[in-house]
Simulated scan of single mutants.
Amino acid sequence: MACYLFPAAIVAPRSSPLPRFAHHRIRAQKPSISNPKRLSSVVSSGRFGWDDVLRVGEGNQEDDDPSDLRGYFEKVRACNRGSEKQSEFVPFVVEDQIVGYIHRGFIEHLRKFQDVFTIVSGNNGCYIGDRVTLHSSLKKPEDKTRAVGDAITCLGKLIPGIRNELYPVTSSFGMPVFFSLERAAAPYFGIKAYGVHMNGYVERDGQQFLWIGKRSDMKPTFPGMLDHLVAGGLPHGITCKENLMKECEEEAGIPRSISNNAISVGAISYVDIDEYKYKRDVLFCYDLKLPAGFVPKNEDGEVDSFRLVPAAHVANIIQRAEFFKPNCSIVIIDFLFRHGYISPDDHGYLELLQSLRSGDCS
């Protein structure tokens, strides 16, 4: 196969006792920050600190509208961009099953690998085929994995952020795996990607507090932004629970004796289309009630620091700012639904609930 190259500190909570906050349903609150223009600047530049985050979280009671869910809807929309661009993609078919979608422009780069990809033309006279499949000579899953992997390596900087981590290519969760694909390439082939996301929380004096992490500035994606406690993609050959416990150890120093108590609470999904990328993600969500004295410790260098923040304040942050990595926002919104912080009496409750599963949750 010819190869074508293309140019190209962990912070613990304060030692004083946890503050006593009135347990109440989340209300849409304006941030009490002395300089709103500065807040806008730090958010848009990606540079903000915990002081900025906590000021937004504290909010104030002025112009408080308990039924205003607009900030949550904005976060869901941020994960579901580009639906108007679906016509720019064609199906990626393996063994007569649609496993993904590939942009017409990206297909032109795949034409160079004629022993790997087959472009099947339709009857409409278009120069781009109606679908992309794999060459008929690639019979075994390991042959497909190797050949597609070699092509991805040759594509070079067209697919940035290679992680040497393989995702299963399948028609839906639990179905036979046709082959495995480099994680960074998943959105370029539009395959379904699965992950595990966990909210870690503490209860004290009848209040709930969420552990929030601030991503390392060295992360290739969303550097310096906020995450919930633990998250990770689901590689090939590992169960969701086992992967979650592994991520708990690596990202937050949570021993298996504790992480084994994490509770599976459902899944959310979204579709994000941006240029050549067609992200179809399904996130399996977990809750873990942590001991009151537990302090997370990052072990893999991907988290800069942690803070324990009242759940009510986390909701204000999501409503009023862009501090969180987008898909982490909707995982936390799901937590807020399940723990009663968003009420059926709030206008748009059912619509927001349904929007958390905007993608093909299968």
Results as ranks from 00 to 15, higher is better:
L39A: 12
D68V: 12
N60L: 05
I26G: 11
Y72A: 14
V53A: 09
G82H: 04
R70C: 09
V76R: 11
I102Q: 01
F89L: 03
L39V: 03
P31I: 05
R70N: 12
E74T: 10
G49K: 08
D64E: 15
D63Q: 13
F48Q: 06
V53D: 06
S44T: 11
D64I: 13
G105H: 06
R27C: 14
F106Q: 07
G100T: 07
I26D: 02
N80A: 02
G49C: 10
S67C: 06
G49A: 08
K75C: 10
R81K: 15
E74W: 05
I98F: 05
C79Q: 09
D51N: 12
R81P: 10
V90N: 00
S87G: 11
D64R: 13
S87M: 05
Q61Y: 09
S87V: 07
A78N: 12
F92M: 02
R27M: 04
L69T: 00
I107K: 06
V93Y: 05
E74H: 10
R104N: 09
D51W: 03
S40P: 00
H103P: 08
F92N: 01
L39S: 10
N60Y: 04
S67N: 11
R77C: 04
E74A: 15
R55F: 04
P31R: 05
G71C: 03
E58P: 00
I26L: 13
G71A: 09
D63I: 07
E84Y: 03
N35E: 08
G46M: 07
V99E: 02
R70F: 08
Y72W: 15
G59V: 09
D96E: 14
D52N: 09
E58K: 12
R104E: 11
E58T: 08
V56E: 02
Q61A: 12
C79D: 10
N35H: 12
Y72R: 08
I102R: 02
S34L: 14
A28P: 01
R70D: 14
S32I: 04
S87N: 12
E88I: 01
G71L: 03
V56P: 00
S40C: 06
D52I: 02
D52T: 04
I26E: 03
P31Y: 07
Q86V: 14
R55L: 14
R104K: 15
K75S: 13
V90K: 01
L69K: 02
E62S: 12
V42K: 04
S87F: 08
I26P: 00
F92Y: 06
D64P: 03
P66T: 08
N60T: 05
D68P: 11
V93C: 08
D64F: 09
S83V: 01
D51V: 11
E95A: 15
V94S: 06
E95W: 03
E84H: 10
K37F: 08
G82M: 02
E58G: 00
L54P: 01
E62I: 10
K75T: 07
A78K: 14
R81S: 13
D65F: 09
G57D: 00
R27E: 06
K30H: 12
S67T: 14
I98T: 15
G59R: 06
F89G: 00
Q61D: 15
R38H: 15
S41T: 11
I26A: 13
R27H: 05
R70P: 02
K37Q: 11
N60S: 08
S40V: 09
I107F: 06
E58H: 07
V53P: 01
Y101V: 00
D68L: 13
N35S: 14
R81L: 15
N80H: 03
D52M: 04
F89H: 02
V56L: 06
